[in-house]
Design a protein around this nucleic acid. Sequence first.
DNA 1: GAGGTTTGTTGACTACTGTGACAAACTGGG
DNA 2: CCCAGTTTGTCACAGTAGTCAACAAACCTC
Lengths: 404, 404
Amino acid sequence: MDSSTGLRAADLRQSNLAAVIGVLRSGDASRSELVAATGLTRSAIAGLIVELGELGLVVESAGEPTGRPGRPSPRARLIPGAVGALAVDVSVTRLAVAIVGLDGRVLRSVERSGERSDATPTSTVADIVEMAERIGVGSSDGSPALVGVGVAIPGLVREHDGLVVVAPNLGWAEVDIVTPLRDALTLRTGLDLPIGIGNESDLGAVAEARFGAGSGSRNILFVHGDVGVGGSIIVDGGRVTGGSGYAGEVGHLVVNPDGVPCRCGGSGCWETEIGERVLLGRAGLDPNGGWAAISDLMTAAARGDREVMAALALQGRWMGVGLAGLINVLDPERIVLGGVLGELLELVRDELDAELARRRFGPSARRIPVVAAELGSDSLLVGAAELALGPALADPSRWAEVAY
Amino acid sequence: MDSSTGLRAADLRQSNLAAVIGVLRSGDASRSELVAATGLTRSAIAGLIVELGELGLVVESAGEPTGRPGRPSPRARLIPGAVGALAVDVSVTRLAVAIVGLDGRVLRSVERSGERSDATPTSTVADIVEMAERIGVGSSDGSPALVGVGVAIPGLVREHDGLVVVAPNLGWAEVDIVTPLRDALTLRTGLDLPIGIGNESDLGAVAEARFGAGSGSRNILFVHGDVGVGGSIIVDGGRVTGGSGYAGEVGHLVVNPDGVPCRCGGSGCWETEIGERVLLGRAGLDPNGGWAAISDLMTAAARGDREVMAALALQGRWMGVGLAGLINVLDPERIVLGGVLGELLELVRDELDAELARRRFGPSARRIPVVAAELGSDSLLVGAAELALGPALADPSRWAEVAY
DNA sequence: GAGGTTTGTTGACTACTGTGACAAACTGGG
DNA sequence: CCCAGTTTGTCACAGTAGTCAACAAACCTC
């Protein structure tokens, strides 16, 4: 988005192309449905469809009779594999590179598992490029035309230039990964693509909001919890970034001023009450046991283990305390829980609901649905791809130059 | 805003007219500055200025030499009194009606003070219309052309139709004030104007964001505190409404789960720690003493009264606890405090800063400025006017039919 | 006063969407 | 099976807005 607020005539076409694509991304639509959705005339839609067809983005299939009078309207459909984004998930335990289509589906992917805590930015860039080549990036073998690259990082990313301010679990600080990655990709594959980079939690939220548990709602609170607790706020379909791009650190909402110290320097943060380590500790399990311990906890809960049930009850209450406050502040349509929080949701549902009911406020006393994230480990890739696809879809005609 | 996402050719002009007005609302601008700000060409700007001039909204004055080479660019300026909005502030202790110009200045106003707790919707509507007539609404005596009406209400207002869901301090519930007010205004003054209605805290925030302590920032958290504590979240210059329009109830953020019961049914809400009554109680004053008691408290603080200082210290700490959490969640550029909270800000500044510093989180460890609201009691009128002016300014050419 | 710079003005040009008439494809009734 | 009614695609034409490019106006510096 440029700072210019004025609209040129060309922006008009661009905006309308993007509007059509936007409608089509949530499913097929007949031309007449497009007319209704966009408010444009039949002739305008016809022209837009033709252009999108020429760009190789949309196909039309003959309209089926609907059972009602009138000439059937042909259905337009996005070609999911027409364009795609290169998505990269840089996390502590794995490095994944994938090509993701317009419909949010992973078309090809490679993954390198295992502890990567010694990975430097340089070695990571080299790995990414090598893996990208392995899934066919740069070879014109019928893979989708790539419109950009999206990278998910487990750390804080500065909004305007994509600098990785800090990624504690990778041991990175003040790292510019965009420039070397772009250069390396250009050198090895000949593709000079725009690169977007974002926090993994935010990207997971974007993916869930569009394709997962949040699809259909435009105001969503996403809370992701493992060892740390983070979140993202989706308002009117877009992520709230805040003044510096750091919005959404719900883990450091203060819910218990007398609580235990938090790694953030404060105390009684929400994270110190609902983080994975606390839960495991309360349940008498190894606080650093990770997913294995969580899995043990779930089987113990299925057995009805006393200590575990008590720990889960407390977990549910504290989740309710924090969510109740956030509901009052943000009034989301829906809350999506990811990570361990999502996994455990049904086990704490009763206590959580009770706490929410107790703190439900006045006339806004609606039940906000709290649901678990639906997308699995792919969510980060899908979200990362969205980072590249989003800007590209806002200006479709530009790829004419980009393709392949 | 209609649901149609497509842009017609006519929307283009409308959008560009609005863009020019938008720039001009924050001050004079030369044509060349408008070119830079909008990204349009000189010819386009010229045409837009001409049209705005014909609408009676803009005047140009000959350009002064700037001291640099080149032909001087004429300065365009909004005529503040060209159009205005009828602003109404319905509160418990006063009823105010005003005409507010494009620049957010109150051009004329009348006020009726005194306890109004027995005011019914019907009597309020009658009062409003009578007061509106008294400041010249409906008589074409050179008053600005009115483009709409904005009403500030101390209660919850449903977003889409303006129904007053509940206004506890007025004793109203499920009240439609829009329809009778519109009818009465049409009947008595001949004006059939669109009416906008909003929560007073939200409107105060909008006013502060545009003309007051928040001007210049596009991401603001506004917290208004008297007996109750509410707030508004401004993201990218627009207020976050949430899924149902109830966002911003920061008073019911849970900060102290073991705290005292709150009128919302929960306990330990922020409001129960920083509300006016709690502060006065802790300071040994009459909890229901209102502004008089607050005034007493401030003089006592100036004297260095032991009990009062302790109460203020606690107030500052609790303010810090809540604000720290909200900063982590929302990452605002600036926090604006209104009502009693704003009045007391400097008295609690040290404790507040200390608490914020203690809980400042990682790399987002920036100092977020916390400032008091600047606009006085007019802020609600200005915000209410904005409710009417905003939509009108988005479609300037339409008033051609409206004027007078 | 000459040359350089920035800006307003003007008329031709381009691009987009709207309009309206007509044709195409369906339903349903006689 | 045909015809009226309905909905929709197509096409030529018109309207509107903004860009472009050339020129003139108003300023600066030397």
